[in-house]
C-alpha cells in the first residue's frame, strides 16, 4: 500500500458513518474489535445472522477459534452470504482466525473445516505450535507510517504461500508472511485489537470509505 493512495482520503471517522462496520460475533474477541472501531468513530453492528450482515459496509472477522466460527457460520446460514459478500467486494479485515477464514487454502484445519476464501493465499493454522510458542514482537509493515508495529501472535497462523493476486505486507525475520492484502480484503496473523495499535483498523476504515465512494 503506497503512501500516495492514502493521501487524499478523508479521515475514517467521517466516511465510516455511511454504513456501519460489522464485526463477526459468532465466537472470539469480537468485543475488542468493536471497541477499537467505535474508538475510531465507526458505528458497529455485531454480525451473527444474514440480516445483520446485509446492513454493513465493511466487516471484521475477529480472532478466535476458526474451526468454531466456520461451523457456526455454516449451521446458521451465514457461510453463503459471507462468501457472496466477499465475492461482491465487501471490504473485510480478518485477524488470526479471521485470516484463516479469508484464505483460499487452509492447512492443518480440523476435519471438514472450510474457509470463505477470497485471499489468494495458503495459510497454515496454528503454525507455531502450542501456546508455549505464542509470542510478541516488533514488525515493520510495508506502507504503514509511524514505525514498527508491536504484534501479538497467539497460536497464530502463517501465510505459507502468497499467490500472485495477493500482496504480502509484513514478514517475520525468517521470511514467513504474516500480513496480506488483496483488493478489498486485508488479513493479519496477529491481533492489533489487543495491543492498542489501531493503524490497521484505521487503514481498513479508509478502505471501507473508498469502497463506499466508488459504489
Amino acid at each position: 500500500m503506497p503512501e500516495a493512495t492514502l493521501v487524499d482520503m478523508p479521515a475514517p471517522a467521517r466516511l465510516a458513518g455511511e454504513a456501519p462496520i460489522g464485526v463477526l460475533a459468532l465466537q472470539g474477541d469480537f468485543r475488542e474489535h468493536a471497541d477499537v472501531l467505535r474508538a475510531l468513530g465507526a458505528e458497529v453492528v455485531l454480525v451473527r445472522r444474514p440480516e445483520e450482515l446485509a446492513l454493513v459496509g465493511g466487516l471484521v472477522i475477529p480472532g478466535g477459534e476458526s474451526s468454531v466460527m466456520d461451523k457456526l457460520a455454516r449451521m446458521f446460514g451465514l457461510f453463503e452470504p459471507l462468501s457472496d459478500a466477499v465475492a461482491a467486494g465487501l471490504p473485510v479485515y480478518g485477524t488470526c482466525a479471521g485470516l484463516i477464514m479469508l484464505a483460499d487454502t487452509v492447512l492443518d484445519g480440523i476435519t471438514g473445516q472450510q474457509s470463505i476464501g477470497g485471499l489468494d493465499i495458503v495459510v497454515r493454522r496454528n503454525a507455531f505450535g502450542s501456546q508455549a510458542a505464542s509470542f510478541e514482537t516488533e514488525l515493520d509493515v510495508s506502507g504503514l507510517a509511524g514505525g514498527p508495529m508491536h504484534a501479538a501472535f497467539i497460536r497464530a497462523p502463517v501465510v505459507e504461500t502468497v499467490g500472485p493476486a495477493a500482496t504480502a505486507l509484513a514478514r517475520l525475520a525468517d521470511g514467513r508472511c504474516v500480513a496480506v492484502e488483496q483488493g478489498s480484503l486485508l488479513g493479519t496473523s496477529f491481533h492489533p485489537e489487543i495491543t492498542g495499535d489501531y493503524r490497521f483498523h484505521e487503514y481498513f476504515l479508509r478502505r471501507v470509505a473508498a469502497a463506499a465512494f466508488r459504489r
Binding site: 460475533a25 459468532l26 465466537q27 472470539g28 474477541d29 469480537f30 468485543r31 475488542e32 480472532g63 478466535g64 477459534e65 468454531v68 488470526c96 482466525a97 501456546q131 508455549a132 510458542a133 505464542s134 509470542f135 510478541e136 501479538a152 501472535f153 497467539i154 497460536r155 491481533h191 489487543i194 495491543t195
Partner: peptide, 17 residues
C-alpha cells in the same frame, strides 16, 4: 514468549466459546 499479553490473549480468543 510467555508474556502476560499472550497468556491473557489466548483466553480472549476463547471467549464466546
Amino acid at each position: 514468549f510467555g508474556s502476560s499479553r499472550v497468556k491473557r490473549g489466548l483466553a480472549e480468543m476463547l471467549k464466546g466459546g
